[in-house]
Design a protein around this nucleic acid. Structure first.
Length: 565
RNA sequence: GGGUCUAUGGCGCAGCCAGGUAGCGCUCAGGACUCUUAAUCCUGCUGUCGUGGGUUCGAAUCCCUCUAGACCCGCCA
């Protein structure tokens, strides 16, 4: 890594940012080189990309990064990840001094191959039709495809990602890919051979890598392109029965001729479509999931050798898995959408998840990951604002990376000062106790504890999120066992009676508990622990006197009685 | 058949993609503090960083081998 000082770096130095993140740009002590940008994988990727563009001699005036959005199923958090990471590269490029923008491209001309679980079976009749021609089963958008895309776009909007939206439907209708389609179809035989050689798929040795939409029944895939007329720039096809996702789909028998310039509807096969788009839109970066690795390899070859366009720089990522280690399915049952995450976690927590790293698989669950990412964001904020954790002190590269990660999680627009840091689980626990008038009462408690100096909208938002978490993932803590011996029983009984008399100040209650424990020969420590167990389901908790006064003496008395008798 | 990822104290994980003292959370055990701010603090659980090689002054980290598990692709897009 001795070659990291060059023009790109110099440009990066010149760019003005917040003035803090660049503080880590000093040599690391092993002398292996300077930190690039903000020291994260995004910066490294952007740097590599720029170097490559320069060696290719391409213009870097406006670098397009692209993300493809599936529109055939409910978009899960992995789809958001593809776009968010591409946007991260755009930000890193900007930080290095290059203009860049994200194109979000909806594959809304893809055919519906399978009705996702949880959606009406009436969609069956539309199988193999382009999703942009299928009516929206929820009747709120122009089409099925538009409905699905809108869910993802809403997610992007809510985390603050900016993009230029494009659709396959418009792209083909406007004939934007006509030259690329022509070039590909003219050399389809050679491409078919190459695909067979590269990935073992023999299909395109027999048929053209282009799917017209049958003008009679408006289905894709059944309409099989049999020949291409180079001068007319049209494919002739026959609509035949075919197999799709393991089931038979009937063709209508229609024979037709489809122009490739937008006059007729149709699309390229995936194995060659990316290449056409990259060349037409001048895409310089596109991330991809490992499930389409083969397609990307073929597309790279097609771009390079058929279209004469050096393919974009890539980054491969693993799928997000759910906690069982299964791929997150697109069926409605367990889809982890951005919207669902945002019920419990902040936009920054989602971005932190996606920007933290790209390599490696990860199992993802809201219950486990939202609290830790929410807290991790606070830790990074502390690092960024100078309360450096000691293990980072001796390592400038890692310090820069931590700060950089914070910056990206804020989309490079960090706040002026750190927010109030409240542990997520603490907020959730308090929210679990105070279910009515939650925001006000939890904030009151936090003030009382000295956790926060004053109420703020951010804290209220945290309470709202943590409250949703508490409601959704309510741990029935009452099930834990308490060792109740005779002394303990007597003490708890005595406390219950005291609470029933109901005239205690918080201090009276606190003292009363202690006295009851001692007079019954029980360890106060154990009695307190038992009470926490009964009330909160945990071994510890807030100071009990004020706490019990807060939630109601009668209620606590009842909880004790129910538990001990 | 092809490919990718994962393997780190009792449990769960971070660190790896930019090599530099093996860390965090939880749990458990013991101790300090004669009622506890969500108490706090101390100590311990003696980690062959899956195996075997290689590169390096130095490897959990980079390269190769092997083992086990998971996932993806297999003529759908």
């Amino acid at each position: 890594m001795t070659d990291t000082r060059d023009a790109a770096k110099a440009t990066a130095e010149g760019s003005r940012d917040d003035g803090r993140g660049s503080g880590g740009n000093s040599s690391s002590r092993d002398g292996s080189g300077d930190v690039i940008g903000h020291g994260t994988w995004l910066d490294k990727l952007a740097y590599e990309l720029v170097r490559r563009e320069e060696s290719l001699g391409r213009d870097t005036g406006m670098i397009i990064v692209e993300s493809g959005l599936g529109a055939s199923g409910i978009p899960h958090i992995g789809s958001l990840g593809d776009a968010a990471r591409a946007y991260g590269v755009k930000l890193a490029l900007g930080n290095l001094g290059y203009d860049s923008k994200l194109v979000a491209y909806s594959d809304d001309l893809d055919g519906l191959r399978k009705v996702p679980d949880g959606l009406p079976a009436s969609l069956e009749e539309h199988l193999a039709r382009p999703v942009s021609l299928i009516p929206d089963p929820f009747s709120c958008h122009d089409s099925y495809g538009a409905h699905m895309s809108s869910i993802l776009l809403d997610g992007l909007d809510r985390v603050g990602i900016e993009y230029e939206f494009r659709r396959a439907y418009d792209t083909y209708r406007q004939g934007l890919l006509r030259d690329q389609i022509h070039a590909i179809l003219c050399r389809s035989a050679e491409i078919g051979e190459k695909i067979a050689e590269m990935v073992g798929q023999s299909k395109y040795q027999m048929s053209l890598p282009y799917f017209p939409v049958c003008e009679s029944c408006s289905r894709l895939y059944t309409a099989q392109a049999v020949s291409y007329d180079e001068s007319a720039r049209a494919v002739s096809y026959e609509c035949r029965d075919t197999q799709m996702a393991g089931r038979a789909i009937s063709g209508c028998g229609h024979s037709g001729c489809a122009k490739i310039d937008g006059g007729s509807l149709g699309k390229l096969a995936w194995k060659v479509e990316f290449a056409a788009r990259w060349a037409a839109f001048d895409v310089r970066f596109e991330a991809y999931g490992k499930d389409i690795m083969d397609s990307v390899r073929v597309n790279d070859w097609v771009a390079e050798h058929v279209l004469g366009y050096a393919p974009p720089h890539h980054a491969k990522y693993e799928m997000f898995l759910d906690k069982g280690g299964k791929k997150i399915s697109k069926s409605a049952g367990n889809v982890l959408t951005a919207q669902r995450w945002l019920e419990f976690g902040s936009p920054q927590s989602i971005l932190l998840l996606l920007y933290k790293r790209i390599a490696g698989a990860r199992e993802l669950g809201i219950r486990e990951d939202v609290p830790s990412l929410m807290d991790e964001f606070n830790e990074l904020e502390d690092v960024y604002f100078g309360r450096v954790r000691k293990e980072l002190r001796g390592n400038p590269a890692k310090l820069a990376k931590a700060r950089g990660l914070y910056l990206y999680a804020n989309l490079l627009r960090p706040p002026e000062r750190p927010g109030a840091h409240v542990g997520y689980m603490l907020a959730a626990k308090l929210a679990r106790v105070y279910r009515t008038d939650r925001a006000r009462r939890v904030v009151e408690k936090l003030l009382e504890y000295g956790t926060i100096p004053e109420p703020s909208p951010e804290v209220e938002e945290l309470v709202r999120l943590a409250g949703n978490y508490a409601d959704e993932f309510d741990e029935e803590g009452g099930s834990a066992e308490i060792a109740v011996d005779d002394n303990m029983r007597a003490a708890l009984g005595s406390i219950a009676r005291m609470l029933d008399s109901g005239r205690g100040t918080p201090d009276d209650i606190q003292t009363g508990i202690y006295d009851a424990a001692k007079s019954c020969g029980a360890q106060p420590k154990d009695v307190f622990a038992a009470l926490y167990q009964i009330i909160l389901g945990s071994r510890r908790g807030p100071r009990l006197g004020p706490f019990i006064a807060d939630i109601g003496e009668a209620r606590v008395s009842k909880m004790i009685t129910e538990r001990v008798s």
